[in-house]
């Protein structure tokens, strides 16, 4: 089961959903997961997170706590029992 967390900044497009469990998500990558979530929440979900096929500059996605920018970006593997956090990169200092 993949566990997904959405920051409050995304709640407008997740209908207020902050946490989601995806028992049926098969082995894939972040891109696959985003497509699956866009199927559930609509295309505006993807528009918030990606631009021209890349994660937007101020979007941080963590798979099991690791920033996907330090992994393989949208091709970062996501599998059952993984946790994925979508968080804006606007904190710090």
């Amino acid at each position: 089961m993949v566990h997904v967390f959405f920051s409050g900044a995304l709640k407008a497009v997740t209908n207020g959903v902050a946490r989601l469990e995806l028992p049926d998500f098969a082995e894939g990558d972040l891109d696959t997961l985003l497509r699956s979530l866009a199927g559930r929440f609509g295309p505006s979900f993807s528009d918030r997170l990606t631009e021209d096929g890349h994660l937007r500059r101020y979007v941080n996605v963590f798979v099991n706590g690791e920033d996907v920018r330090f992994a393989r970006g949208l091709q970062t593997p996501v599998g059952p029992a993984d946790s994925v956090d979508f968080i804006p990169a606007v904190a710090g200092g």
């Binding site: 920051s7 409050g8 900044a9 995304l10 407008a12 918030r48 997170l49 631009e51 937007r56 500059r57 101020y58 979007v59 804006p88 990169a89 606007v90 904190a91």
Partner: peptide, 12 residues
């Protein structure tokens, strides 16, 4: 109270 832009996650 708002963390980031609702549209693009950009800083406010």
């Amino acid at each position: 109270a708002r963390t980031a832009c609702d549209r693009c996650f950009g800083p406010l």
